[in-house]
């Protein structure tokens, strides 16, 4: 899910970077309020914990494997604000030290994995927890993974890199499988900790679902409203190139090999995209809650924890 450089167009990476910066600045303020002196070392070690836990891979289907992502677990264990910063550190180190995810795409990757994923996870956990904590943890893992994948698909589509319908269905379908595993691991982990060290689970305290709901809506709204604004500016350098005329020569050269391309309706279908995105999120949420319902019914008959 780490988008490399070059896969997003200027408007998309600028928009997501702006939205991420604002959201992270707010998360830093919120986290700072809760932070005690011992917290930076603690959060750093927990970031290393998420990083190490991502090494745990599991077989998925047809010989492929997926690995644990950890955003949902972090949100449940240490609360949403600190989880965002921990995920930001993980994503940042992966970009700068491992080349995993691009530098220009860092804003988008942070947006997907450090803002959307923990927010969605925390919301889902907060809503379902009153019925059943393990089911809530499962749903948090599943839904956050699927929604994140869907957001990646939307970003690729908006950049003109991939068509929406197929990317979204491929990404969603695949990540329902990955997400189910993520959910199961998250639920087992939370269940295990609930027996062994219940004091370490932040999610056991009063959950502030409302402020995360507001926060994530504002973050998404920022991205959605900034995007058309950014796209009404022409792609910066490409415009300069056009103005001083050198692009034509180069384009002629390139067109001899591969004709110029156009994505039909990329700008006009803004509304359609938004609707499709919402629909996708709705479907993902529906599946999440549906599965959670089934799991819960089983839970009632079976053992607890």
């Amino acid at each position: 899910m780490h988008i490399p450089d070059g896969f997003l167009d200027t408007k998309t990476w600028v928009t997501t970077a702006a939205a991420s910066s604002i959201a992270i600045a707010y998360a830093v303020r919120r986290a700072n309020k809760e932070l005690e002196e011992k917290d930076p070392p603690l959060m750093g070690v927990l970031a290393a914990f998420i990083f190490a836990a991502q090494m745990l891979n599991f077989p998925v289907a047809g010989g492929t494997s997926g690995h644990f992502l950890g955003a949902a677990l972090a949100a449940i264990l240490i609360g949403p604000w600190r989880a965002m910063l921990v995920m930001l550190a993980v994503v940042g180190v992966q970009a700068f030290l491992f080349g995993d995810g691009g530098i220009s795409a860092l804003g988008a990757n942070v947006f997907n994995m450090a803002i959307i994923a923990p927010s969605v996870a925390y919301l889902v956990y907060g809503v379902i927890k009153r019925f059943s904590a393990p089911v809530a943890a499962f749903a948090a893992g599943l839904v956050s993974t699927v929604v994140t994948a869907l957001v990646v698909a939307i970003e690729l589509y908006l950049s003109g890199t991939a068509p929406l319908a197929i990317t979204a269905s491929l990404m969603t379908g695949w990540h329902i499988v990955i997400g189910a595993a993520e959910g199961l691991i998250t639920a087992t982990t939370v269940g295990y900790l609930a027996r062994v060290r219940p004091d370490l689970i932040h999610g056991n305290t009063a959950l502030d679902v409302r402020s995360i709901a507001v926060f994530s809506s504002i973050s998404v709204a920022l991205a959605v409203f900034l995007s058309p604004l950014a796209s009404s500016f022409p792609d910066g350098l490409e415009r300069v190139a056009h103005d001083i005329g050198f692009i034509d020569k180069a384009t002629v050269l390139f067109n001899a090999l591969i004709p110029d391309y156009a994505i039909p309706g990329l700008r006009n279908e803004w509304l359609a995209t938004g609707l499709a995105g919402l629909l996708g999120v709705g479907i993902a949420l529906g599946v999440g809650f549906g599965l959670a319902g089934i799991a819960r019914r089983r839970q009632v008959g079976g053992e607890t924890g």
Binding site: A53, L56, F58, L77, A181, L184, T188, G191, L193, R197
Partner: peptide, 16 residues
């Protein structure tokens, strides 16, 4: 997957 979940849990306690 449950085994991995328990590993993550004990890794978390050790990290903490």
């Amino acid at each position: 997957l449950k085994i991995i979940g328990q590993m993550v849990g004990s890794l978390f306690i050790r990290s903490y």
